[in-house]
Amino acid sequence: MSITPVSFAGLGARARLEIIRPVITDERQRRIPLRFSPTDYKLSKSNTFAEITIPGLETPPLQYVRGGSETLTVQALVDTSDTLDNVRTSYVDAIRNLLRPDSREHAPPVVQFVWDEAVFTGVVEKLDVNYVLFGSDGVPLRAQLDLMLKEFRPAAQQVADNPRSSPTVEKSYVVRAGDTLTSISAAVYRRPDEWRALARANGITDPRDLRPGRVLTVPRLM
């Protein structure tokens, strides 16, 4: 038995986009199905580092600045060649609407890409639609969707899930121009009042004497 795009729609778990913010109780409005599950998807994430300029060094030390947002890219196919309905109104418009600001949130909805399980949570950053099949009257019947989602994680959740620093683990810190012991303490401990622990661990008697490029020991907090 040959498998056509339409018959394939009934095989296996179907991928979908699901609106999680704002809260929508009507499941038919909250869930946006994809006619066919994709063959693959791609997750990408990057970090930003700053180069610390120290005269005489061939390779400057790197200082972690921040993490970048993770992105998901997926290519999907939607098709109405069996019913001859307009694929734009049946599938594409609902996905395009995810790019529009919601009146309650004043921002586009937060969605999950679900394929048997929740794979990714984010906002739709980009959507390319390529119509590839038409009826005799010019009605589009099939479209290829190139969809990009950007990760959405509230700041409070990130602090709770993955704190960037821990007061119980000894680390090191490369001083940058404009740094003070107070600002460094706020960055590594989230407590600016712990600057004295940094001063003691590094033998600093004058808190104003911080040269860019100096490597400080960040001690554990007792």
Rank of each mutant, 00 (worst) to 15 (best):
A201W: 04
E170W: 04
D209C: 05
L145G: 00
V124D: 01
V111Q: 02
P108Y: 05
P33D: 08
T80D: 00
P108W: 02
A9Q: 14
V119T: 04
G12P: 02
S172D: 15
P55H: 08
I52Y: 05
I184M: 04
L216Y: 01
T48K: 12
Q157I: 11
S136K: 15
R16T: 03
Q29M: 14
R208I: 06
P207M: 09
I24P: 02
Q158G: 09
A15G: 07
L99S: 15
R28D: 13
V92G: 01
T4G: 04
P154E: 11
R220W: 03
Y64S: 06
A177R: 11
F134Q: 06
N97W: 10
T83L: 05
P140D: 02
S103R: 15
M222K: 14
E70S: 12
D102S: 07
P5A: 03
Y173K: 02
I54G: 03
S81K: 14
I52F: 04
K150L: 07
R176S: 09
F113N: 01
S90M: 09
E125L: 10
P167D: 10
P33S: 10
S90R: 09
R191N: 15
S44P: 06
T168P: 08
P167W: 05
F120Q: 01
R100G: 01
G68C: 13
G56F: 03
L198W: 00
T89E: 10
M222S: 11
S7Y: 06
V111W: 00
P55T: 08
I54R: 03
E58T: 12
P154I: 03
P163K: 05
Y189E: 08
V74E: 01
S165G: 13
R164Y: 11
A156M: 09
R176Y: 03
P163A: 04
A201G: 09
R214K: 11
L127N: 06
G56W: 05
V169E: 12
P109I: 00
T73P: 05
D128T: 11
I52H: 05
E27Y: 07
I24L: 14
K171Y: 09
T59H: 09
I204L: 03
S103E: 15
Q63V: 07
T73N: 15
V114D: 00
R100V: 12
V188Y: 00
S37V: 00
L141E: 01
L181N: 00
E117M: 11
L98H: 04
K171N: 15
V78L: 05
P212I: 02
F120R: 00
Q112P: 08
N97F: 12
F8Y: 13
R176C: 04
M148G: 07
P219V: 06
D93W: 14
P192V: 04
Q158M: 12
T59C: 06
T89W: 12
R142D: 06
L221Y: 11
A156K: 14
P22S: 09
A15Q: 03
S136P: 14
K45N: 10
L221F: 10
I204K: 03
V174T: 11
V111L: 08
D79G: 03
I54S: 02
